[in-house]
């Protein structure tokens, strides 16, 4: 079993883990999540069902949908054929591919025109990549952060890296011309992301920056993720205890919603930026 690292809170958490895996004592469980021990009836039972649906089957469905829809979109766009003539801009850079990569990942145009926006964009996109990494890290097979750690990757900082810029992006949408060009969908997408991040922050900040922690540790989440990865269809409720559980469910729900809507939003720029920048930088071969 994991060693007690930071006193009481960790001890409790470790106990919870132990309890869930059946190696600890039953008292540990009731101490942490007494509420869950009460037999559910009526509405509570319905809620349990909904929460189970959100945290397990819906996750599979939305991830599958995301992959299929994105693939379909890519195939459709790439198979629709080339434009009638080449659309490059001049002067042509010496290495068009490198220039396109630079455009895509460095966004030099934005740096020049709106440096603050660029700063937040870079922070956000780097944060987003770390976020994906941080979630993968939860799987027990990957351990960038020690499995027994209370923290997840970045100890809450990654959450800040995406949350702060999202606030900025949202505020920016209300400014000048940006307000006029923004559609309701643009605001909704940002709000969805914002709430998704805030609930995520609640977990990671709670674990990292409060004395008692978020109660659920990386190891707890690992059990949930491993369950998903192994298609065990186990109810995460059995490994994630406490009243905070509902926050986890909301976080997962928002993530599911994002997965489902993402292929229909401008987030597809993640896939189209490089091809489009190549169109701009690489002229067709002259005859």
């Amino acid at each position: 079993m994991a060693a007690t690292i930071t006193g009481g809170a960790a001890k409790v958490a470790t106990d919870a883990v132990a309890a869930a895996t059946g190696t600890g004592n039953a008292a540990g469980v009731s101490a942490v999540s007494g509420a869950s021990q009460v037999a559910h009836t009526g509405l509570a039972l319905v809620m349990d069902g909904i929460e189970y649906f959100i945290t397990v089957p819906m996750v599979y469905l939305s991830v599958a949908f995301l992959l299929v829809a994105i693939a379909a979109k890519l195939v459709r766009s790439f198979r629709a054929g080339p434009p009638p003539f080449q659309l490059a801009l001049y002067p042509v850079p010496r290495h068009p591919l490198i220039a396109s990569l630079r455009d895509t990942f460095g966004m030099p145009q934005i740096l020049k025109i709106e440096p603050l926006f660029w700063f937040f964009l870079v922070m956000y996109h780097v944060g987003f990549l770390l976020l994906i990494l941080g979630h993968l890290d939860i799987l027990s097979g990957i351990n960038l952060v020690p499995p027994e750690s209370r923290h997840m990757l970045g100890a809450g900082a990654v959450g800040v890296m995406v949350t702060l810029p999202t606030f900025y992006f949202l505020g920016r949408r209300f400014r000048d011309a940006n307000r006029v060009i923004s559609t309701p969908g643009d605001y909704l997408l940002l709000l969805l992301l914002l709430f998704l991040f805030l609930f995520g922050d609640l977990m990671s900040w709670g674990n990292s920056w409060t004395a008692s922690g978020f109660v659920m540790t990386k190891a707890d989440f690992a059990r949930y993720f491993d369950g998903l990865a192994s298609f065990s269809f186990a109810d995460p409720r059995t490994v994630l205890h406490g009243a905070h559980y509902h926050f986890v469910v909301i976080h997962v729900l928002l993530a599911n919603l994002l997965f489902i809507t993402l292929p229909f939003t401008k987030v597809v720029h993640a896939f189209f930026s490089l091809p489009l920048n190549l169109v701009r930088r690489q002229p067709w071969k002259e005859s």
Binding site: S77, A80, P82, P83, D186, F272
Partner: peptide, 18 residues
């Protein structure tokens, strides 16, 4: 065409071109 589809789907309405 393929590029046009991407032009239509990709714009982030970032306002940099304003």
């Amino acid at each position: 065409n393929g590029v046009m589809r991407m032009y239509l789907d990709t714009c982030a309405r970032c306002g940099i071109c304003v």
